[in-house]
């Protein structure tokens, strides 16, 4: 699983950092860091985080590449 976050949309509501804290991390109160290649045991967490994003900025792809 691969993720991309549209940082132009991101408004730091931080729902992803609550719901998948191993993948999404806030540095300071606004800067978002994330792991683009999601470890297998975090797929469910990432799906929950993507569904919860209030500005729908998280794109989830099940495999790398086009």
């Amino acid at each position: 699983m691969q993720i991309v976050v549209d940082l132009n949309r991101c408004q730091a509501y931080a729902q992803c950092a609550f719901l998948a804290p191993q993948v999404f991390e806030l540095h300071g109160e606004e800067a978002l860091m994330f792991t683009p290649t999601v470890p297998d045991d975090q797929h469910e967490h990432v799906r929950r985080a993507a569904a919860a994003c209030p500005v729908q900025a998280i794109l989830v792809g099940e495999r790398a590449g086009p």
Partner: peptide, 18 residues
């Protein structure tokens, strides 16, 4: 809100809800 957030969520308590 910022003070209340520190023990509740990120960036200071990212794992509490999970």
């Amino acid at each position: 809100r910022r003070i209340a957030m520190r023990p509740f969520g990120p960036p200071h308590s990212p794992g509490r809800i999970d």
